[in-house]
Amino acid sequence: MSNSFIIGQYVPGSSIVHRLDPRTKITIIFFFVIIIFFANNLLSYGVLAFFALLSMFTTKIKISYILKGLKPVWFIVIFTFILHLLVTKDGEVLFSIFSFEVYSGALYKGLEISLRFTLLILMTSLLTLTTTPISITDGVESMLNPLRKIHFPVHELALMMSISLRFIPTLMQETEKISKAQASRGVDFRTGKMKERIKAVVPLLVPLFVSAFKRAEELAMAMEARGYNGGEGRTKFRELKLQRVDAFIFIFSALILVVFFFTRV
């Protein structure tokens, strides 16, 4: 299994961040994402970075592991940074490489965008690192619940999400298995011209679809056998309850928010 599969994958733990109600985490991250666009000076970015780093340390997950997970994102960050250096022409000329002139505004803008991006990715990956996908689903279902009144299919949506989550690892294992079987029959997924590589995907996709359909059929039958008959009359096992620690974190975050608006210019 390649390492890229583990980015943002849930890491079990018992830190405060792990124990928070998913709704708390989703709400905080939602606001964080909005607020990040209001930051306009070094100090305000400092406050946000402080909050993000504090959250990161509180999870008690190895920092090296979190950073490693962000690896593919570094490329995008650096790319946008360089793009800004080349394109933006604000402020005074700082220095020039070959015939390219780098402006101070470009440097500032580039740094700002990169920082924003990094913070965004860091915070959202903290959510997935410390929350099981099913808790996220529960959180989303519970937050969408008011929409039931306008006949929005909240239960069906949540069930679909949870079944997809349930089968992602299974389908990934299956993909790996079939690709290995076809590789043993001489399919080369890695080298060759683009056209050949696209062709090589067919022996992988057809069996995957066939098996996914078969699974879906059997799963539907198993669900039916266990009395599934739509959302009507169903009770629910999973229950979300806000704890004291959620209240504490909310207040703390609000405090940071206030500090943040004071630091803005």
Binding site: T132, I134, S162, L165, R166, L219, A222, R226, F237, R238
Partner: peptide, 14 residues
């Protein structure tokens, strides 16, 4: 293909 829940306890609850 008959494991509906994302965890053991969810599956029994289903």
């Amino acid at each position: 293909n008959q494991f509906v829940g994302t965890t053991v306890v969810d599956d029994v609850a289903f």
